[in-house]
Design a protein around this nucleic acid. Sequence first.
DNA 1: GAGTGGTCTAGACCACACT
DNA 2: GTGTGGTCTAGACCACTCC
Lengths: 261, 261
Amino acid sequence: MDPRAEPGEPGERGAAAPPAPTFSPLYRQIKALLLSRLQAGEWKPGEAIASELELAARLKVSQGTVRKAIDELAQENHLVRRQGKGTFVATHAEERTQYRFLRLTPDDERATGRLRRRLLECRRARAGAEVARALGLRSGDAVVQVGRLLLTAGEPEQPVVLDEIWLPGTLFKGLSAEKLASWRGPMYGLFEAEFDVRMVRAEERIRAVAAGAREARLLAVPEHAPLLLVERLSYTYGKRPVELRRGLYRTEQFHYRNELT
Amino acid sequence: MDPRAEPGEPGERGAAAPPAPTFSPLYRQIKALLLSRLQAGEWKPGEAIASELELAARLKVSQGTVRKAIDELAQENHLVRRQGKGTFVATHAEERTQYRFLRLTPDDERATGRLRRRLLECRRARAGAEVARALGLRSGDAVVQVGRLLLTAGEPEQPVVLDEIWLPGTLFKGLSAEKLASWRGPMYGLFEAEFDVRMVRAEERIRAVAAGAREARLLAVPEHAPLLLVERLSYTYGKRPVELRRGLYRTEQFHYRNELT
DNA sequence: GAGTGGTCTAGACCACACT
DNA sequence: GTGTGGTCTAGACCACTCC
């Protein structure tokens, strides 16, 4: 490959464009290439990709250059390196923690008990204006709507999270209550295995709100009780939004934890 | 330096200890060395450190090894690289965004207006049990307690954040209301310049709570209105906690934004 | 022992900022 | 032009995993 080649996303030329990123190093081009292969599904989540030396030979660059490309992809959680074994496509199916994206943590560190799920509904519907805008659809397009509770495992079990989830109908054609109920492990693992949708990144917007009547009943709190509202938009490759989630969290015994650097 | 030397934090030997990290690569030893120099204040925030080649020559390693050490330090926000100019000690004083650690964002993207500060109090006090535990002090030790509001700049101005801040008294001896009121720029910039305290990392715990009487009055919301409670513990070098902050955020027009990867 | 990722080196050259 | 960080190479050797 030629170090002086065009960047993956070529800088706009002509017109009165800003400075223009006229230079893209080789390793970034290789990174873009690998990303496009991941996106194309050339390697499935959990599988090993080609070794560094093999990629280097095939692409006619040095190992160090491939290495730097893979470094960045590993950093961004697309790949996972395992010394002595190989480099693997990241997956939500085998997370150390059950939910990689769930930042809710028990106040009591020792209470490490997993949360139970209870499915409330799973139905096909039409996107309202707001959902459509978030997911990049048109109002009225088909969506799958899922409602569920997360509860503490203890006795008595206690509701902690009420989630409402919207998914583009075209991507999640066969999704049903049965599939969701029978699936073991993280929901995002199901999405990978059955629908070829990998969540790569997400943005959350967090607010404090007062519980409405329905929410209060489902979460077993008084009406108007303060709840954490967590709106999450999840993206797959190419900054494409593929899930909207509206979660209400009880935070008497749990908190949303965040690390700032 | 010897690649086979002991790690910076030596692995426990003897007894029935876990696997034991018996190997620490050279670049990590150099990273630890640089960190200790930063901690010792050898270079001040905003200053340039020695160049890669100079460090390599002085430490008798290759440039690539120094480079990898600096890479990690830059990643962790201890250093900032600037091509053609040098590598600089990170600082809160010249942040692109006014507050690096403040994740509160206006719902309306265009409303980029800065927030005003209003100092409510700044007084010396004795640490209660909870504050002492968080800051690694003993109950009754001296602390500085600061209260303040952040308000929108518009007309009419509207309170958005009510912060209560606790700082170890020994570290912040000369801190006064006058100093705080007259300082331009982020508070953490003042801490760097006047007290040699650099915030490096922070953890936040977020909850939804109902406004109490005093908080409701200060934030101009009804009593029992839902508010975001953000408890932040900030650390300086060596995982040493140096600030506890309890913030109440109004989230009708603002939200706490977070990125998940 | 063979294969994989991880470290380290030495040297060449490029992009960028200052002067 | 000089000095800084950034890229790329080629090759040696180390640590880890599995057969």
